[in-house]
Design a protein around this nucleic acid. Sequence first.
RNA 1: GGGGGCGUGGUGAAGUCUGGAGUUCACGCCGGCCUGUCAAGCCGGAGGUCGCGGGUUCAAAUCCCGUCGCUCCCGCCA
Length: 582
Amino acid sequence: MAEEVRTHRVGELTAESTDVRLAGWVDSRRDHGGVIFYDLRDSSGMLQVVVDPDAHPELAEIAHSIRLEYCISVSGQLRPRPEGTVNPDMATGGFEMAVEELTVLSASDALPFQIDDRVEVDEAKRLEYRYLDLRRPQMAANLRARSKAVSAIRRQMDDMGFMEVETPTLIRSTPEGARDLLVPSRLRHGNFYALPQSPQLFKQLLMISGVDRYYQIARCYRDEDTRADRQIEFTQLDIEGAFWGQDDVLAAIEPAVASATEAVRGVRPQTPFPRMTWQESMNRFGTDKPDTRFGMELVDLSAAFAATEFKAFSGALADGGVVRGINAGPQELARSGLDGLVGTAQEKGAKGLVWMFVEEDGSLRSPVAKFLGDDEKVALVKMLAASSGDLLLIVADSAHVAGAVLGDLRLRFGKPESHDELRYLWVVDFPVFERNSSGELTPAHHPFTAPVDVEEMATDPANAISKAYDLVVNGIELGSGSVRIHDPETQRKVFEVLGVSDESAEAKFGWFMEALRYGTPPHAGFAVGIDRLVSILANEENIRQVMPFPKTQSGADPLTGAPTEVDGAQLAELGIELLAED
RNA sequence: GGGGGCGUGGUGAAGUCUGGAGUUCACGCCGGCCUGUCAAGCCGGAGGUCGCGGGUUCAAAUCCCGUCGCUCCCGCCA
């Protein structure tokens, strides 16, 4: 039998291990001219190994030639480190291997960057050599965290009786919503598949098929500009259940998310997660994804200024708007910083932003202080619970704009007490329509979301509520779901209210509308962003940190060079010809 | 589509505002010394078209224009 390359992994070693052979990478090397130390790293940990030329003169030459990140195999005996040389910073710091045999399995060129968490490297360079970047302990730990989270989720879903079903990734394009990633068809020139933005309609079909409880760890694609928490290609935990309402969905997602959290953090979060209505969230936090780890909530000051002489406030109130503010706490901000805040407010569509500092004597320092009555100032300080040194920020505008601006500023000034804390939160009772930055009503969810009352949706769209809900943690949207429409007539009406004509709905979704006619069970579901969840559990600010091979902001992969041009023959097969560049 | 930041030996930074010899620091790399270190130490060395192109100037890493790349954000993401 051929000799094994290794008998143990570092993490499996105990004080009793004998005749040990290890294989791994040289993480660091300390060559004293005689005795040489290596820190040998494998996937499970790190161990100091010692080459002593007095004991093994035949190893001296090769040991001296070994460089960082050489892949080597060593064998020998474990022994306690000599008195005074124990390294308390190392998990295996009480032991070392006395090397008897040493083999270079594979040499390494000088590295493009150091493999060390303490050395920061430009991300483009890291992605170009991602296979080296992933050797760094932090990245290796992130990969493991992701694997643990996903496997905990799978176990939990299996325990709860869910069936994993794979849905296709070459599907029909439905150009509503995000931009589709398209794949040309070779057999039908001029026709295209789309990569799924989510398995939405297939999982609904599975409900019709009699699959009672479906889940999938599904790869999804949206061809939109990236952000720190968005890539064109991402992974969702996708679930759907028949004969379900909202409570059933939340009761299924909670243990899955709790299990993933426990698998990575070691602590299972308390369930059920708290719930808050969308309206309450907008009123208190100015956003539908509130970070509830700190206060600094938005306060409606309209009552205090009902009869104000200050035109900026009275004007907004006369237009049906509000005066709202936050107490940003003790802040020292120069004029330029304050101007920056005003600029931010204007970007969000506000006409302006009022700032005030509370002086030691309780008076207010602000360019607009002279326009306010004494009773108004007193009420303001009281309503915002303001004290000396506090910065108060006030916006008079439509409720939508004031909320957006103050919600933003709240995040800028508010600080959670602990960064380890996870505040999971359900935001429920979403409206059917939300206002975009221009103030227009746009659908808040996909058109398969059940409204609470389809008639209300038609007659009072601005106030109609849908059976839709989001999962939020620490101010980040983790996922969303809804009770679905299971009745063809309701589905038709919803398309109508959303402005999709019968002809258009029939052309794009006729196949789905027909499926609804064959005894569709009531059903509901959800999708959780796995990349976002794992990045939060791993305390990473960027989902690329928990994706093995992510893309840059321009959608490129610096490692493989994708996307690339393809040769003319490939295009010809697809019946595609490129337009000349502009 | 728009706004901000960044781009300087292999890596990370300083230098740029206020133009004056590719200058500096740390790490890495190469060689030597060194027998208990652990981000080993000491000595020596190599290595850069300051992202790219153009302009201003006696002189540009530095000022101006353009462009490319990375990144954060707005729009967008039903």
